[in-house]
Simulated assay, not measured.
Amino acid sequence: MTAYSKYFDKIKVRPDKKAEAQSRAPVCQWDGCHEPGTHRAPVGRMREGEYFRFCFDHVREYNKGFNYFSGVPDTDVARFQKEAMTGHRPTWKMGTGAQATSNPDFAQKRSGNAGYYNRMRDPHSVFGGATRDPNRPRERKLKSLEAKAMETLGLDAKATGADIKARYKELVKRHHPDANGGDRGSEDRFRDVLQAYRVLKQAGLC
């Protein structure tokens, strides 16, 4: 068989599945990164089933600070853990089953309106909930990375997107290498501000 034999055309090479997956993957969602986003990372609580796409290095960085229960009171976390033991189903003492089913609250409990996991949001009061005051600002619950980023910028959870952008521009102007006179501490602060703004922008807060 020669080097240019027709049999070479029939040889099948096993495809490189890793390279093929990388070529089909979207770009990493970490700000400034252009590597393939081959790894999924959960967006967070109340947004189950939604994921960010990161490269290997950035998914590790994201997972270090991820906390599903960020912003949830300890009492709610404890109740969630207790209800998880029964699969978040309503329970009652033995011998009280008939009384429990005749209780008007039983239908509500069974429908899934009771319990941390099965609570559902009803912003328009479709199911008879209390009407929310439209003038009252919505409380924002930050994840640990977002809270740390806000703290770096000197802001709290009530800060708006405009507040974040204005504060970011102010700090960048103050600590930029061209304006800090070679101050090493100011350069470190500049990098922290850039990273904090990247986290908040990625979370859709600005």
Rank of each mutant, 00 (worst) to 15 (best):
residue 1 M to T: 12
residue 2 T to A: 15
residue 2 T to Y: 09
residue 4 Y to Q: 12
residue 5 S to L: 00
residue 6 K to W: 10
residue 9 D to E: 14
residue 9 D to G: 08
residue 10 K to C: 11
residue 10 K to I: 09
residue 11 I to L: 13
residue 14 R to I: 05
residue 15 P to W: 04
residue 15 P to Y: 02
residue 17 K to G: 00
residue 22 Q to C: 01
residue 24 R to E: 11
residue 25 A to D: 02
residue 25 A to W: 00
residue 26 P to G: 07
residue 28 C to L: 03
residue 32 G to R: 01
residue 35 E to C: 02
residue 39 H to K: 08
residue 41 A to L: 01
residue 42 P to H: 06
residue 44 G to N: 02
residue 44 G to C: 05
residue 44 G to H: 01
residue 47 R to H: 11
residue 49 G to T: 05
residue 51 Y to T: 03
residue 51 Y to S: 06
residue 53 R to E: 07
residue 57 D to S: 13
residue 57 D to C: 04
residue 61 E to R: 12
residue 62 Y to V: 02
residue 63 N to I: 01
residue 67 N to S: 12
residue 67 N to D: 15
residue 68 Y to W: 15
residue 69 F to N: 08
residue 71 G to V: 04
residue 71 G to P: 02
residue 71 G to C: 05
residue 72 V to N: 01
residue 75 T to F: 10
residue 75 T to A: 15
residue 76 D to V: 13
residue 81 Q to E: 15
residue 81 Q to P: 00
residue 83 E to D: 08
residue 84 A to P: 06
residue 87 G to S: 05
residue 87 G to I: 03
residue 87 G to M: 02
residue 87 G to L: 05
residue 87 G to W: 01
residue 88 H to P: 05
residue 89 R to H: 11
residue 91 T to A: 15
residue 91 T to S: 14
residue 95 G to W: 04
residue 96 T to S: 11
residue 98 A to S: 14
residue 99 Q to M: 15
residue 100 A to E: 11
residue 103 N to F: 00
residue 104 P to W: 06
residue 108 Q to F: 13
residue 113 N to I: 08
residue 115 G to E: 05
residue 117 Y to E: 15
residue 118 N to W: 13
residue 120 M to I: 15
residue 121 R to V: 11
residue 123 P to M: 03
residue 126 V to T: 11
residue 127 F to V: 00
residue 127 F to Q: 10
residue 128 G to S: 08
residue 130 A to G: 12
residue 130 A to Q: 12
residue 131 T to Y: 03
residue 131 T to I: 15
residue 134 P to C: 05
residue 135 N to D: 11
residue 135 N to S: 08
residue 135 N to P: 02
residue 139 E to Q: 10
residue 141 K to D: 00
residue 141 K to S: 09
residue 141 K to L: 14
residue 146 E to S: 09
residue 148 K to C: 00
residue 149 A to C: 07
residue 151 E to H: 10
residue 152 T to H: 01
residue 154 G to V: 02
residue 161 G to A: 09
residue 163 D to F: 06
residue 167 R to E: 06
residue 169 K to P: 00
residue 170 E to V: 02
residue 170 E to W: 03
residue 171 L to V: 02
residue 172 V to P: 01
residue 174 R to K: 15
residue 174 R to Y: 09
residue 175 H to M: 04
residue 177 P to W: 06
residue 178 D to H: 08
residue 179 A to C: 03
residue 180 N to H: 07
residue 180 N to T: 06
residue 182 G to L: 06
residue 185 G to E: 10
residue 186 S to N: 08
residue 187 E to H: 09
residue 188 D to P: 00
residue 189 R to L: 12
residue 189 R to A: 14
residue 190 F to R: 09
residue 192 D to K: 13
residue 193 V to N: 04
residue 194 L to Q: 13
residue 195 Q to E: 15
residue 196 A to E: 02
residue 197 Y to Q: 10
residue 197 Y to H: 15
residue 198 R to E: 10
residue 199 V to N: 09
residue 200 L to Q: 06
residue 200 L to P: 01
residue 202 Q to I: 09
residue 203 A to K: 04
